[in-house]
Structure formats: C-alpha cells, structure tokens
C-alpha cells in the first residue's frame, strides 16, 4: 500500500514536472540581445549603449518616442522574491519568484539604515498601511515604470519631454531647460523632474518628493529627502535600458541602483486608455475597515 502510494506520488510528480517543462520556455528569451536577468541585462546594456546609434528626432535628439512596457520587472519587491517567501504560496494573489532589480550594492539589497529595515521589506508599511497605489494615488517614481503601458513624447521645441503612464492616469512633465528648481517647500507625488541629454542618454534628475510613495508591494520606501536620477538609453530600436539611482540620507547608508528594461509595445493601433481608479475602487474601503491606515509617510516622519 505504502509502495503503491509512493509510486503514485512519484508518477504525479513526474507528470507535474513534465507539464511545467512543456509550459515554461526552455531558456528565458533575451531582452534587447541581453540576458534576461536584471544585473546581467544591466551590464550588457551598458556595453551595448556604447555602440548603438539611436534613431533621431528632426531636431537631432535621440528619439525615445513611442509606447513602452517594463520588462524584467515585477511589482512585488525590487529586492526580488525568493522561493521561500510565504506569499509565493499564498492562495489569494500569490507572488512569483523573481530576481532582484537592485543591481548595486553587490548584495542586491536596499542599503537601509537599521531603523528602516523593519519598516520596508514586508514590514510595518506592508502590515499596517494601505499601499499608496491601492489608495489610488500615482504609483510614484520609479514604480510607475515597472509594468504598465507608458508613452514617451518629445513635443515640438524640445523644451519638455512628456512621460505618460496608463496607471491611474499618471504623467510626468520633464523640463529640459535650465530654469530654477521649485522651492523646497513644494512637495509633489512624482517629484520635480529636470531632464538633460548626456550623449544618447536621457538623464532625469528628480527632487521635491512628498515621500508618500513606495517602490513596490512590499512597502520598500523613500522619504521627502529622496533624490532620484533616472537614465534612459536605447540599446536597440525597441529596447530602453532604464537605470535608477536612489539617494536619501534620511533612510539609506549609501546611494543604490535599480535597473530593468522598457520594451516597445508594438500592437497595431495601440493607445493608452483612461484608467480611473478612485472613481470605482472598492478594495480601499474594505482594507480601511480591516484596520489598514492611509500611508502619508508616518513611519519615517520626524527622522
């Protein structure tokens, strides 16, 4: 009997493995000719960027225009999801195992100051607060660029670059001129974005955050002192290397870096749709009744 059960179990396991093997691609497809793991992609993309000559706008700037989607990215955790994470086995909206998008420091973890570790990383934020995205705010920088469809426009005159995101009708106006920055007291959800071209790379310098946003579903966070520098470089006609350097002396011990890809959305006639959130969202009320609080940066305030 025991033997029979074992044999049956083994047979089932073999069948399951065979099914998985049939479904999963033998090797994950490369992205922009680079390996599909964020750190390997990052290193390869930095090399490719040295030789690729991007298409140009009529005024001679690299032409990043079009519809894009995040690739090699997921919203569970920028530090990646290990197979041991209990949420992977969750019956409700299970998480998926994934490599980290943190490419520096070498241990691929956010270099939190010790007080902040139990707040991020599926800690106080995750357990006690409503994810600011679930509360229908803008997902913030850089979370906006993780997955959903987005569009980059380079309007006439080159004074601005516009980065539109379908997610909760979010948009970023990136000023390409040298006007003075906003005053320090003016805090905005997506920050104040100033752009410039460094060779073929669009460099966006972002300040004036209100610190009400997370990086991911895990509650990894920054504060209103954050300074984020994004670098967008085409490595072929359909792939952008997206690199994000994060600096925040209130909460990290050193600056650190994220990287993933934006790949061109090629569906014929594709357009961004209106994604209202607050207007129809029902989870928010249920979660608030369950004791979750709105997140307006309380865990870091006063630091």
């Amino acid at each position: 009997m025991l033997l029979r059960n074992s044999a049956l179990g083994l047979a089932l396991a073999v069948t399951a493995a065979a099914t998985l093997a049939a479904q999963a691609p033998a090797t994950p497809a490369p992205v922009g000719g680079c390996p599909p793991e964020p750190l390997a992609f990052h290193k390869c993309a930095l090399e490719k960027a040295k030789t690729f000559s991007p298409p140009r706008t009529p005024s001679g700037k690299p032409d990043l225009q079009g519809y894009w989607r995040g690739r090699l990215s997921q919203s569970f955790s920028v530090e990646g999801v290990s197979g041991n994470e209990p949420l992977v086995g969750s019956l409700v909206m299970p998480w998926e195992k994934a490599p980290p998008m943190v490419v520096d420091p070498p241990d691929r973890k956010i270099p939190y100051q010790s007080w902040a570790i139990p707040i991020g990383r599926i800690g106080v934020n995750y357990n006690e607060y409503l994810d600011p995205r679930t509360a229908c705010g803008s997902a913030g920088v850089p979370r906006l660029a993780l997955q959903d469809a987005n569009q980059i426009l380079q309007p006439a005159g080159d004074g601005y670059i516009l980065w539109l995101h379908e997610d909760h009708h979010s948009q970023r106006v990136i000023a390409m001129d040298e006007r003075p920055r906003l005053g320090a007291e003016i805090k905005v959800t997506n920050g104040d974005s100033r752009g410039r071209w460094e060779g073929n790379t669009l460099v966006i310098d972002v300040n004036n955050f209100n610190g009400y946003n997370w990086f991911d579903d895990s509650g990894n966070f920054y504060t209103d002192a954050a300074h984020i520098v994004e670098r967008l470089t085409m490595i072929d006609r359909d792939t952008i290397h997206y690199e994000v350097r994060v600096e925040d002396p209130k909460v990290y011990t050193r600056p650190w870096t994220l990287a993933w890809a934006q790949v061109r959305e090629k569906e014929q006639g594709f357009e961004l749709l209106e994604e209202a959130c607050r207007e129809g969202e029902r989870d928010r009320e249920r979660l608030l009744q369950g004791g979750a609080k709105y997140y307006f940066g309380e865990p870091w305030r006063g630091r």
Binding site: C136, G137, S138, R179, P180, L182, V188, T189, N190, R278
Partner: peptide, 15 residues
C-alpha cells in the same frame, strides 16, 4: 518659471 504643480483632490481628502 510658472509650472503646473499638483492638486490631487483624492489624496488631500484622504489625508
């Protein structure tokens, strides 16, 4: 230096 800033009524109501 005039800019479009942010008035997010939903967030302000929740806050």
């Amino acid at each position: 230096n005039v800019r479009v800033l942010e008035y997010d009524p939903g967030r302000l109501i929740d806050e």
